[in-house]
Write a protein that binds this DNA or RNA. Structure first.
Length: 875
DNA sequence: CGGCCTGACC
């Protein structure tokens, strides 16, 4: 009972945002005058070394700043103090092969459309001329070879050919680049020159996203005996990383030992970069970093920038700040990339105010915020719901003359699209296209998601058509957005069509797409089908995450449409798997299994589309206990439940057939997280006094979440308590939520707005509000002329046309004899004049119906109950 | 070898 797995924390949600709106510019001015050099204060107060928490324990090997020159590694690889600018890394035998690596950087810059410079290139002017000719006359392989033959005698060595193939790569012409490469390699005698060509070819292909071709070149180079260099390995690692194959990158990296190769700085940077792109856990990347240090490598700016990128993926703002401090301690210059990546990590960690402070200190360090800095901050503010701050930064950006780029327009657009403010979204689109930036796939996806969430399916269809007409290729996000949007609207036919199109496009589904599918099944109560889809995705090598599991958990106890889609297509393929082993056949078999799965998904959609209301079928108690099994599975897979999981569990409890069942479920779940489920269980059992303190710290944690996550939690908890007769407890929770401003502007003297609340929360709140009005009456104060209760029917409704809340509240008021009636013009508004309500409140029996009680109480609660009754009446 | 934007759960 006492053992609580450490991974079960409610705070393990991805969204933890603060919510302290304030005028941006005032703050900025204030802070700048208050503190001339905020950075100094930071480094002196918060000097963090990599070896200290908050970093994971595996950082133990990272050197402490002061000890950098005295670590044991220095005996093997003499190190010069990192602050010496003249520091050069120790040379291995291979360094002499390719002195310097300027040309790589050169290509990289060119690739990003930077101005062309001639610095750092080693090609001759003949190469330049050859390039022109290749572009102009090298129409096909033969013509190209002829051009090259013409130049062959005048081109000097591999440098010229490297220039040629890189330039061709930059132009996206990888065919010609390959031709050049093959032409040059054939004629080159020296292995190290051939190796140079191969590395350049691999890195060029990697940059173009042609990872398969890069692999072919790499493997050919190995067999031919010139690919066995650190440079070729680094290039292929980077190529894999770019295309998201970080496991391949890591595998290649570790295989270098077997080839007798010692990774150098660039290799380590490439593999760390690949980890960042592939979403590898920071802890694991630190192991590589530690190894790098152990091998006497001096990490540079790029190393740290790549490590920061790993942190930014996971929102690990503490680790990111430690890394930044470590850079300062090691005397490594920080650049705009460092700052932007750090800011992204801090924003994603929800520390917007800290991010703002870091941004403010940039000018003092001579690094001026650029368009990326602003986009990062603006997106951070937007996700935290701080739209005024976001807008202020936009204005500041315009004021400073920083022109918006594709990404910043998309950031701005996504804010409006999410809010359903389509007029403004269209304005952004227009402004974007007026400045010569075409809508891209990100723009379209944001629009599709936005319109879809507002149920504007006609517009969704139109936008999707426009997108294709304009030759913007839909990507995985496009398809999963559409499938999700259509499924949520019950447009299964359309969802199915999109799914078919998605398969035709040859894209591979990911965890999000599967989760959207699974959720659609769950919402229809098809738990079994959902679970089999979960198995299927796991078989395909896609790891489910907490979101996937949250959908499944939420499905338990939901009334099902006709359960289970029969699987009739796949018997034969399973037999085949066992008897065949050749890889081609295996592939074909896998394909068959996948096809079978696709047809099943299509079938499920078909069934859902054909389904009318569906017979309600609640499988009851045993099904509830399946939740425990799911929890165990999550634990096994090391998937941390979060606050959304908790809310889903509470909602499932509300669907339990009996109090005993619900309490048993919570009791069992205490094994996983005693605080979280202990509070829920305790409140349900009526152990108020003992539990309330724990509940407070739970509420403190929930306070760190974004507002919709927090309100969903309060809604779920109060619903469950209300459902099982713990109405007083429900009310305490709901008032706590109100005190902590979980629901915006819930009540004033004249109006109670329940539109963001669940029915349990709303009903508990109605009681509290009426008691408050009663207090006003009895204190002899004036009651407002008109009192109204909004239940979210109409424009405030979360779900269009859903009147569940209104009916619940109406029935509650009716039962109490409260004189509220539906307003004629607005069905979701219940109104009464103040005087009528006042006289009802003065009636002798009214107080009794207003004060709530728990079905289950315990002796020790009496004192507590009295105190909080008093507190409540003072509200 | 580097940074910012779009999708799923309550």
């Amino acid at each position: 009972m006492a053992s609580t797995p450490p991974h079960c924390s409610i705070t393990a949600t991805t969204k933890r945002y603060q919510n302290h709106p304030y005028p941006h510019n005032q703050l900025k001015d204030h802070r700048q005058t208050q503190n001339q050099n905020p950075h100094q204060r930071w480094t002196s107060n918060q000097r963090v070394s990599l070896a200290k928490p908050p970093l994971p324990p595996s950082s133990r090997n990272a050197p402490k700043p002061a000890a950098a020159t005295t670590t044991t590694t220095t005996t093997q690889h003499p190190q010069i103090h990192p602050t010496f600018p003249s520091f050069q890394p120790p040379k291995s035998e291979l360094v002499s092969d390719f002195p310097g690596r300027r040309s790589t950087r050169f290509v990289s810059k060119l690739h990003f459309g930077r101005p062309r410079t001639t610095m750092g290139t080693r090609h001759t002017s003949v190469a330049q001329e050859a390039l022109q000719n290749v572009i102009e006359y090298g129409k096909d392989e033969r013509a190209l070879e002829n051009v090259l033959l013409n130049f062959e005698s005048r081109l000097s060595g591999s440098d010229d050919y490297v220039f040629l193939l890189r330039e061709l790569g930059n132009r996206g012409d990888c065919k010609k680049a390959i031709c050049c490469f093959e032409f040059a390699v054939k004629r080159e005698r020296k292995k190290n020159e051939q190796g140079k060509l191969a590395s350049a070819m691999i890195s060029t292909l990697g940059r173009l996203g042609k990872v398969e071709m890069a692999k072919t070149v790499f493997e050919a180079a190995l067999t031919e005996g010139y690919g066995n260099t650190v440079y070729a390995f680094s290039a292929i690692i980077s190529a894999y990383g770019r295309s998201g194959y970080c496991n391949e990158a890591i595998k290649i990296f570790y295989s270098m030992k077997d080839y007798g190769l010692k990774p150098n700085l660039v290799t380590y940077n490439a593999v760390i970069d690949a980890c960042g792109k592939g979403g590898v856990e920071f802890k694991r990347v630190l192991e590589i970093f530690d190894e790098m240090l152990r091998n006497g490598m001096q990490p540079d700016r790029i190393t740290f920038n790549s490590l920061l990128a790993v942190c930014s993926k996971g929102g690990l703002w503490e680790a990111a700040r430690s890394l930044s401090c470590e850079m300062v301690n090691r005397g490594i210059d920080q650049d705009i990339f460092t700052y932007n990546t750090l800011l992204d990590a801090v924003c994603k960690g929800g520390q917007l105010d800290m991010a703002f402070e870091i941004m403010s200190e940039m000018p003092a360090k001579n690094i001026l915020p650029n368009v990326v800095t602003y986009s990062t901050m603006i997106d951070g503010y937007a996700k935290a719901g701080r739209l005024d701050d976001a807008r202020n930064l936009f204005n500041e950006m315009k004021f400073l003359g920083i022109s918006l780029d594709r990404v910043s327009y998309n950031t701005l657009l996504s804010i409006y699209a999410k809010l359903g403010r389509f007029e403004e979204a269209m304005d952004v689109c227009r402004e974007m296209e007026n400045s010569g930036i075409r809508k891209d796939v990100v723009t379209y996806n944001a629009l599709l998601g936005g319109y879809g969430k507002q149920y504007k399916y006609d517009v969704v269809r139109k936008v999707f058509e426009e997108m294709k007409a304009r030759h913007v290729s839909p990507n995985l996000l496009t398809y999963s957005t559409l499938i999700d949007v259509y499924s949520k609207g019950g447009l299964y036919r359309e969802a199915m069509d999109v799914f078919r199109e998605f398969k035709k496009a040859g894209l591979k589904a990911d965890v999000v797409l599967y989760s959207a599918l699974i959720d659609a099944l769950c919402k229809n109560g098809l738990v079994e089908s959902a679970v089999s889809l979960l198995d299927e995705m796991t078989k395909e090598g896609i790891r489910p995450n907490v979101v996937t599991y949250n959908s499944i958990i939420d499905a338990f106890g939901r009334p099902a449409t006709t359960e289970s889609v029969v699987d009739d297509a796949g018997q034969t393929s399973e037999l085949q798997i066992e008897s065949l082993s050749s890889s081609a056949v295996e592939k074909a078999t896998k394909r068959l299994v996948a096809d079978r799965e696709d047809s099943r998904i299509i079938k499920i959609f078909g069934q859902l589309a054909a389904e009318k209301a569906g017979q309600a079928k609640n499988s009851g108690g045993q099904e509830m206990m399946c939740i425990l099994g799911v929890f165990h599975k999550m634990h096994e897979l090391e998937i941390k439940p979060n606050v959304v999981t908790f809310s889903a569990i509470l909602n499932a409890c509300s669907r339990c057939n009996s109090f005993e069942e619900a309490s048993m479920l919570l009791e069992e779940l205490r094994l996983f997280d005693n605080q979280v489920y202990g509070v829920a269980h305790g409140l349900l059992m009526g152990y108020r006094e003992n539990v309330w303190e724990q509940a407070q710290s739970l509420f403190d944690e929930v306070k760190l979440m974004d507002s919709s996550t927090a309100s969903a939690f309060y809604n779920a908890l109060t619903d469950m308590l209300w459902h099982f007769g713990q109405k007083r407890g429900a009310q305490l929770v709901v008032l706590e939520g109100k005190r902590r401003q979980v629901w915006e502007n819930v009540w004033s003297e004249s109006c109670l707005d329940l539109h963001l609340m669940s029915s349990g929360a709303a009903r508990a709140m109605v009681h509290a509000w009426l008691l408050n009005v009663r207090a006003i009456v009895f204190e002899g104060h004036e009651v407002p002329k008109l009192l109204s209760i909004l239940t979210g029917w109409g424009k405030h409704s979360k779900v269009v046309g859903d009147s569940t809340l209104r009916r619940a509240v109406e029935a509650l008021l009716m039962g109490m004899g409260a004189p509220f009636r539906s307003a004629k013009c607005n069905l979701g508004r219940l109104i009464s004049t103040g005087s009528v309500v006042a006289s009802w409140l003065r009636e002798s029996g009214t107080l009794k119906v207003l004060v709530l009680h728990d079905d289950r109480t315990h002796q020790e609660n009496l004192r507590f109950g009295q105190i909080s009754n008093l507190q409540m009446l003072q509200l």
